[in-house]
Amino acid sequence: MSEIKKIKNLKEFSTSADRFEGANLLCPGCAHSIIVREILNATNDDLILGSSTGCLEVCTAVYPYTSWDNSWIHIGFENSSTAIAGAEAMHKAKKRKGTLISDRDPKFVAFGGDGSTYDIGFQWISGCFERGHDMMYVCLDNEVYANTGGQRSSATPIGSSTVTTPAGSHSYGEKKDKKDMLSIMAAHNAPYVAQVAPNKWKDMIKKIQTGFATEGPVYINAMSACTTEWKFDPADTIAVSDLATDSLVFPLYEIINGTELNITYRPKNIVPVKDYLGAQGRFKHLFKPENAHVLDEWQKRTDAKWDLLQRREEARV
């Protein structure tokens, strides 16, 4: 086991040498990049990285430029998990045979958007977790197919207006609530599953370091506020992220060995869900009088989810 990088505070963290490079093609204010930076900077270990097709992939490896300072692979929309699992298997085999090129043990990390994770790549991730590869899978969850122009995914929350679930005279947008991916991954008996948000960097670093120190498959669901599809000013990425975590729409918690649930962030002042929704253009229509019931439903569901998390934390199930 390699040494865990010491990060006492932000000043110390700021001495990190980024391994994700600028002049990538991500939108100004994109949270993907903030998340990737925090993850890569959480360790000094070598990394073998993969990305499924999506914003992160198409913005960081367009010939003739790469924004990655570690080896990186992209195959398709659905299979960054299995590509990285294959690389992990190769490392294991070569280590056993004594034919490794480098004598250091890298960490294996696969990235995918919520489309790649909740939808098209779901089976591949499930397979990797069932087989127990020693890898981390990070879902950059912006709740929409952002790379292709904002179609709904199964991570799109209720009331969200997307180009395939547009709000209209007879619709308030997406009708269904998002899939509970963390519970599903915990049900794989994954040793470590966590939800993170880039605005809560310390919580995130701690979880990523725990993930790196864990043997076996680790699932990280990272909230990624999308300036383009959530429709807010690029400068407000962190402000919107704060609203998400402080309204408990994105509660921060971890699940160890499938059952031990720990809430890792309890906002001092819980803000109303409508403050979070109101900060984003994708929910603008919900503030029309005829959609008031959706706002109520949102608050109700968020409260119920928070209540359930607290009960699970207490009951350790």
Partner: peptide
């Protein structure tokens, strides 16, 4: 988001204007 804040020895020393996209975060 763009690795454009240059910090060295725990001090903020400037902005990398080649990589800054002007998001304003």
């Amino acid at each position: 988001p763009d690795m454009s804040i240059i910090s060295r020895d725990k001090k903020m020393i400037g902005i990398d204007m080649d990589h800054c996209k002007g998001c304003g975060i």
